[in-house]
């Protein structure tokens, strides 16, 4: 797996510098009247289809920012939304 990602702080960098944080799945659900099943789905299920998706990346080998970007896992290229 080799490609580049664009860090909002540092610019385009090698993917080795980043750690994957999973696809975008919305903010942490409210815990009042929580449906355990729904929370389980939110916390544990990851869906990756071969199409553009918003996902989270952490610039571990750089500035240490979490950011989201739109990447297509089929091409490994970022797509500007």
């Amino acid at each position: 797996m080799t490609f580049r990602l664009t860090c909002p702080v540092c610019g385009p960098r090698d993917v080795y510098e980043f750690r994957y944080g999973g696809p975008e799945r919305g903010p942490r659900p409210d815990q009042e009247d929580l449906d355990p099943e729904a929370h389980f789905r939110w916390a544990q299920f990851r869906m990756t289809r071969p199409e553009a998706q918003e996902e989270w990346w952490y610039h571990a080998g750089g500035c240490g920012v979490w950011f989201s970007t739109v990447r297509n896992p089929a091409t490994n290229r970022e797509e500007t939304s």
Binding site: R28, D30, Q31, E32, L34, P36, F40, A43
Partner: peptide, 14 residues
């Protein structure tokens, strides 16, 4: 405490 949305609390409850 449910307002803080503590990480792991729903799983502990379950």
């Amino acid at each position: 405490d449910t307002a803080s949305k503590k990480v792991g609390a729903p799983a502990l409850r379950a």
